[in-house]
């Protein structure tokens, strides 16, 4: 007798053309979100506020009700959905540019208000969809199409550490940074997503996960090289970990 040990999550649409670049971590992240939606039995009560950037196509993959938000405004739209329908499960899926540059005000204020919303933010240190420009998370020294000699302080200032900032908001119930570079880390990422979803279900506050991801196309790397970069370069500035978890008595501290 055979036992099924692996299947396409019910929360993923079937027969959809895969549109992310080869080796991009978006595919893994979307699958993890779908698995958690399945496991927490949320598909039928979930409403997604999608965003602008490579993340926009998430509604082509997730088989849940979705509203597409203007660039940076996903957290405002999610707030509107949740306040109108508090019984629904409301979440966003955004890139770092959407969440932490053009949408930083919406993100911080949603966390400060303690909105019962869960947010997933993909950090790949660049604007992927537009061809690899400097974004809010671009590392110091990183070459992009708009930092041709590398990010320097004089012209560009510092990258933002998103998970730490969100953890400092008092309305945040859970904030973590995870990565998808190894199987072990993918498992941890899924646990973090689950936690960020559960704090909403329990009505505890804002749930947030920043996912360190690859952009092999714009980084001009193979998928393996890209994951090496996540480990060797990104994690030095963006240290993975749980920055706040009120269910586990872990509070953010100012350092």
């Amino acid at each position: 007798m055979t036992t099924q040990v692996f299947k396409i999550p019910d929360s993923l649409r079937k027969d959809v053309k895969y549109s992310f670049c080869p080796g991009c971590d978006h595919g893994v992240a979307v699958r993890l979100v779908a698995e958690v939606l399945d496991e927490l039995n949320l598909k039928e009560k979930a409403i997604l506020a999608a965003s602008i950037g490579c993340s926009v196509t998430i509604y082509d993959f997730l088989n849940v009700d979705s509203i597409e938000s203007p660039h940076g405004r996903a957290m405002a739209e999610a707030t509107g959905v949740k306040r109108a329908r508090p019984d629904k499960f409301v979440f966003t899926y955004q890139g770092d540019g959407d969440f932490a540059s053009i949408g930083l005000a919406e993100s911080l204020h949603a966390a400060l208000r303690g909105e019962k919303i869960s947010a997933i933010c993909i950090n790949n240190t660049t604007y992927g969809m537009t061809g690899g420009q400097l974004g809010p998370t671009t590392l110091l020294g990183q070459v992009t199409t708009t930092s041709p000699t590398g990010r320097n302080l004089e012209y560009y200032g510092y990258p933002i550490k998103i998970a730490e900032h969100i953890a400092l908001c008092e309305g945040t119930a859970f904030s973590a940074r995870v990565s998808l570079d190894t199987v072990a880390n993918i498992r941890k990422a899924k646990e973090a997503i689950k936690k960020a979803f559960e704090v909403q279900i329990k009505g505890l506050g804002f749930g947030f996960v920043e996912i360190l991801s690859t952009c092999p196309t714009n980084w001009k790397m193979t998928p393996d090289q890209a994951h090496e970069r996540v480990r060797n370069e990104m994690m030095k500035t963006f240290v993975p970990g749980i920055y706040k978890d009120i269910t586990n008595n872990k509070q953010a501290v100012l350092v």
Partner: peptide, 22 residues
């Protein structure tokens, strides 16, 4: 009923969109 003192007019109108989508 729902009321939010929005952080900006950008946020306010997009909150309306979110609510209207339901």
């Amino acid at each position: 009923r729902a009321y939010v003192s929005a952080e900006s007019e950008l946020a306010a109108i997009n909150m309306v969109i979110g609510a209207c989508s339901t």
